[in-house]
Write a protein that binds this DNA or RNA. Structure first.
Lengths: 152, 152
DNA sequence: TTTTTGCATGGGAATCGTTCTAGTTTACAC
DNA sequence: GTGTAAACTAGAACGATTCCCATGCAAAAA
């Protein structure tokens, strides 16, 4: 299905900025990007899109369920395309690498906890912060956020 | 043990702002507060402490392990006193109420996931967002953040 | 097709939470 | 008590995000 159809389904007009932004986020190498990352990617493509529009569109995408917003440590939001399957994150604070995982047992226990509290869960997030294998083994994490991960 | 001793142990001078802020966070009703909440509490007590000092002190307390910083949805940081026992959080997005829980099974699974990735975990956070029992049962959540929770 | 209507956009200003800077004050070892 | 490094205050600065508004554009109505 085309991006254009995805947008219409979400009740959003298929405008150029929205199509471009969706396209960027769908690239496999995109993974986790800040609004700024997306903005820079647009500029690199030669598109004249305002930063305000990027923020507006990302928020709309989030409401429409097309992307997931994460509030990793550090204050700024990072976005990733929503491929449907929920997963949690492991973030290397040294190199910014982000790993994803899904553990049915954890999901189930969370569901039980919420149930016991009589709580209706809209969303949940689980992040682990630390240092990745590369760091331990070779000390080669750059200590600077990897471009495109939105983590520094 | 006095707050003053706690601070010295953490390698921090026992200054008036630090003692007052620690005192505020230790009150049972404090639970989860933003820097702004703490600042307002100080003003209410008639203390002349700058907002910048509140931020600086909270960050120092975090480094010293005296408080835990959380990045709940919404961008701003909330702080809670560290009583030693790790726990996770359930946040009602309607009334701002925060519930705490600890699930050994979840902790164990997380440990395993990190191990499998060869990842060294410094910290982890698990938040569930939704609506609490009060909301469902009586619709009495105020739709506005409860003062002192730092959540809105 | 032309007109109307209303959402979308871009750019800059505004806002929010947070951190930095400069100059002054304070805690605490001696 | 005194000296010195650390901590303080107020306000400016900062980065991320949102707001504002004049302009643009595309679907609906005429």
């Amino acid at each position: 299905m085309s991006d254009s159809t995805d947008l219409k389904k979400a009740g959003l007009k298929a405008t150029l900025p929205r199509l471009k932004i969706l396209g960027i986020l769908e690239e496999p190498r995109a993974r986790h990007m800040t609004a700024e990352d997306v903005y820079k990617a647009l500029l690199d493509m030669g598109e004249e899109v305002g930063l305000a529009t990027v923020y507006r569109v990302l928020t709309q995408f989030e409401s429409a369920g097309l992307v997931i917003r994460h509030n990793f440590e550090g204050g700024r939001s990072v976005f990733e395309i929503n491929h449907g399957g929920h997963h949690d994150h492991v973030v290397c604070v040294e190199c910014g690498e982000v790993f994803e995982f899904y553990d049915p047992a954890i999901e189930e226990r969370q569901r039980r906890v919420a149930e016991a509290l009589g709580f209706h869960v809209d969303s949940h997030s689980l992040y682990m912060y630390g240092t990745c294998l590369g760091m331990k083994r070779e000390g080669r994490c750059s200590k600077k956020g990897i471009p495109g991960t939105g983590v520094s």
